[in-house]
Design a protein around this nucleic acid. Structure first.
Lengths: 228, 228
DNA sequence: GTCTATAAGCCGATAGAC
DNA sequence: GTCTATCGGCTTATAGAC
């Protein structure tokens, strides 16, 4: 039985020319490029990253990057956009009724999880904000700002109701944001100081515990007696 | 009386060709360029900053930048180096005997002050660390790492003596670092959320108070009764 | 010591073969 | 839809006049 060179498609495959969920090669390649771009932008920053390096990392020729994403900046914006939704979602506990302590705990844990699971995009986002958010669409900035303001108002409301000590809600939010982001943004520093190449489950648990403790105890957030 | 065009030096000035503290033009120009570079690198990052923009900002022709600093990277390293000493100095309270609460308070206040007074260099430093510290001399990294490790050991010592609660000293240090740095690094976010172009004295005071409260109260740091 | 005018090289982007 | 080969612009860096 002659063995045919494996070119072309196996029988049963249908050639799909239109853009859509069926073009699996397209989806796969876009995904490969996006992942490579996240890593590259996180490591070097937007300006220092080369599209040729992104292509190499993705295992694809450079023109593919332009074919799928049109420009380097476009690709960057897609990486950036991929983290905005998770970040907004992290504030979900503030948008529904709940005990202050539970809301704050949930928020901190989710923010830490994002720093771990979306480490690259998180870092790209942080770098973007640090340099004045020149590529962040105004609408996205407005969404994030609105959510942050809502969280601050929510904390102020708890203070007014005597559910926690009179701390400045803005600065509390900034501290929580910073303390959770730092595990993605300054991973080099964290690796260097701890001497570990990467933190494990227990380390992230300890990080969350430490931040939660400082917030709950430090701001005297009242704990409702648990009903059992 | 004829008015002479004001070229050349007024009588009494001595031409100094050697490099040294006497060449005041040299010192002035280097200072102008360094300041401009700090601002430029802080705004755009190393790779996205153009030496021509730095020269323009300093009000000097571009070749002067190369004349004084040899290369763009060299200039960047000098900006970077200018913040290392202040950062190491911030840990001074950990290097001399003192009450835990006093040490932590002093450290936090100094870190906040650095974020305010060396905002640009702070941001440049943060961006450098974020991207894996590729330009930070190994010796500088070692100094910073050694100091950080010492601070962590110091906190652990206090915990062992029962002077504060059992928190993870690494994560406590990371949180303090992050919460204080954030006022320099993420000033855009802070401006956007607070709606203020720049924070004033009272805002920085409130920031320090908030962080100090979370650390001291959150970690149950024992306060010695003040001797009066 | 200062600055104009220019060289050299890198990188984003694409034309056009397959 | 994929990729090789190349262009063109921009930026670092310097040569050389003043």
């Amino acid at each position: 039985m002659p063995v045919l060179a494996c070119r072309g498609r196996p029988p049963g495959w249908v050639v799909v020319n239109r853009t859509g969920p069926m073009s699996s090669i397209r989806e796969r390649n876009k995904e490969l490029i996006l992942r490579a771009a996240s890593e590259e932008f996180a490591e070097k920053g937007f300006a220092a990253s080369k599209t040729s390096d992104i292509a190499n990392r993705a295992g694809l020729p450079k023109p593919n990057v332009y074919y799928y994403f049109k420009s380097k900046e476009n690709l960057y914006r897609e990486v950036l956009d991929s983290i905005v939704e998770p970040l907004l979602q992290a504030s979900a506990p503030f948008n529904q009724p709940g005990e202050p302590a539970d809301v704050l705990r949930a928020y901190i844990r989710t923010k830490i999880r994002i720093s771990r699971e979306h480490a690259c995009a998180s870092k790209v986002f942080a770098s973007e904000i640090m340099h004045g958010a020149p590529h962040l669409p105004a609408e996205r900035a407005a969404q994030l700002n609105a959510q942050a303001s809502h969280n601050v108002a929510c904390i102020q409301h708890w203070i007014d109701k005597g559910l926690m000590a009179k701390v400045d809600p803005h600065h509390l939010m900034f501290s929580i944001w910073a303390a959770t982001q730092t595990y993605a943004d300054f991973d080099w520093q964290i690796s260097t100081v701890t001497g570990k190449a990467a933190l494990d489950d227990a380390d992230y648990e300890a990080a969350a515990e430490t931040i939660i403790r400082m917030v709950i105890k430090g701001c005297e957030v009242k704990e409702e007696p648990t009903i059992t």
